Simulated assay, not measured.
Amino acid sequence: MNVRPSRAVLVLTVLTMALGAAACAENDRSGSDEGGLTIGLLLPGDRESRYWQFDKPLIEKKIKELCGDCRLVHNNTISDAAIQRQQMESMINKGVEVLILGVVDPPALRSTVEDLKEAGIPVVAYDRLAEGPISGHVTFDGAQVGRLQAEALLKGMGHKADGGRIVMMNGAITDPNAGWFKRGAMSVLKDRVKIAMTYDTVEWREENAHANMSGAIAALGVDGVDGVYAANDRLASGAIAALKAAGVTPLPPVTGQDAELAAVQRIVTGDQYMTVYKPFEPEADAAATMAVALGRGESLEGIAKTRLDSATTKGIPTVLLTPLPVTVDNIKDTVVKDGMYTIDDICTPEFRSACDKAGLTR
Rank of each mutant, 00 (worst) to 15 (best):
G40W: 05
D258T: 00
L58T: 09
C355K: 09
D28R: 13
G146Q: 03
D55R: 01
R71E: 14
N27D: 12
A231T: 07
N177D: 12
G297R: 08
I331F: 03
P176K: 09
Y51T: 07
A246P: 01
L99N: 04
T139R: 10
D226H: 10
L360W: 00
P176D: 08
N330P: 10
G221R: 10
T174V: 08
V264I: 15
A259D: 06
G102I: 00
G35Q: 07
E283N: 08
R296M: 12
D28Q: 09
M340G: 13
D55V: 00
D162S: 13
T139Y: 13
V193D: 11
Q144H: 07
G132F: 05
L235Y: 05
K314Q: 04
A230L: 00
V268R: 04
A178N: 14
A311N: 11
L42H: 09
Q257N: 14
K337P: 11
N232H: 04
L101M: 02
R307Y: 04
A241W: 01
L42D: 14
T327F: 00
Q257R: 09
A211V: 13
P253V: 02
G31L: 00
G224I: 03
E97L: 06
R128F: 02
D115E: 15
G224E: 01
M340F: 15
R147D: 05
Q87G: 07
L308K: 08
L41F: 08
A284G: 15
L300F: 06
R7C: 06
L360F: 01
D338P: 02
K244Q: 14
A150I: 11
E34Q: 13
V328L: 05
L261F: 11
L251W: 02
